[in-house]
Write a protein that binds this DNA or RNA. Sequence first.
DNA 1: AATGCGGGATGACAAATGTCATGGGGCTGG
DNA 2: CCAGCCCCATGACATTTGTCATCCCGCATT
Lengths: 203, 203
Amino acid sequence: MSIRLVIADDQALVRGALAALLGLEPDIEVVAELGDGTGVAAAVVEHSADVAMLDVEMPGLDGISAAAAVRRAAPSCRVLMVTTFGRPGYLKRAMQAGASGFVVKDTPARQLAEAVRRVHQGLRVVDPVLAAESLTAGDSPLTEREGEVLKAASDGGTVADIAKSAMLSEGTVRNYLSAAMAKTGGRTRAEAVRIAEDNGWLL
Amino acid sequence: MSIRLVIADDQALVRGALAALLGLEPDIEVVAELGDGTGVAAAVVEHSADVAMLDVEMPGLDGISAAAAVRRAAPSCRVLMVTTFGRPGYLKRAMQAGASGFVVKDTPARQLAEAVRRVHQGLRVVDPVLAAESLTAGDSPLTEREGEVLKAASDGGTVADIAKSAMLSEGTVRNYLSAAMAKTGGRTRAEAVRIAEDNGWLL
DNA sequence: AATGCGGGATGACAAATGTCATGGGGCTGG
DNA sequence: CCAGCCCCATGACATTTGTCATCCCGCATT
């Protein structure tokens, strides 16, 4: 009996190519393809899928939240995350959300089907390089509000903009940004944003 | 006789999947897969390819430069650009570099093989949505140095850092940034960077 | 009860940033 | 040849940032 697989990725080209590639495997059957995270859990239930392959970066519901939703709706379905960027923080959060595997998109294509099989058997699959980074990089040092403020700052707005969007005083915003800069090691607000993004600390 | 195709994309998973997908077509033969732009022109010559499928964002030599290199080395080989982000500026620059087609990665997978065939026949293939955007968005309003300085600012460094890396006076850097902000409409340096990036003005 | 920590805020101050006027040199098109 | 534009630079100036000290409150730990 073949492995029933659901694929969710926002890039149709990639999604289609992955489906075609995995569909070639005799023991894998692609039962659904989604373009965002919102319908994943429902699709998993509807097609009684064995494995869900999710991209982390997706419009609507992001991959991590989608993974949690899948685990809640269908505990027997394993989740394999596939992502473009090897952000250490993503890995940890994905595992905490109940994912069984985590691979980046520049792993050899051959290993993908194998990863699906391993995950289906209940094993964990993690990119070894990423796992090592994750250990050294550790968790986000940012407090919840610090993260929110930094995220609000990530599109380049002024302090006043951030204060308005976060319902905070301007001085408080500057304090949080200052703390975030200290913790990330960035010497500028923009640098702190970039560092936090690279580490997957901003969701 | 089948179409001889070279594929270059930095994400191995995507690259492999695309190769598998297109390899299924009876009239297409994938003769080479590359992970960066540097060897593309050589590979095209070596395998006497008919079409080169290039990602815009690649380490080493970027897709646009690679496209130009291919056109120089093998004028008979058509170039089809495939990109993640639909940056209007990329389209224009790719066409100027000699590309025959430009599609984004969230176009339906079925159309991809068709795009390859069209390009091979000498036709131009352009995502219609992107083409429309490209007309309104127009060319980069930034002057060459303005672009360089803004690019140098894109990783969040301070004015002093930028000045050092660009061999300019700090005052001059501030002037260029100011001009860039005025032209992009951004109210902050970071905002200007984001706007310019979104439009494909920073390469 | 005391301590510590996160959230929220204020005020003050130094440093960085954004703006503007101004100048000179080089190149190009009318 | 001259006007116009880009490049490079300086200096002065108003704002914005980033930093720091210092509060208050609530909550969990001890």
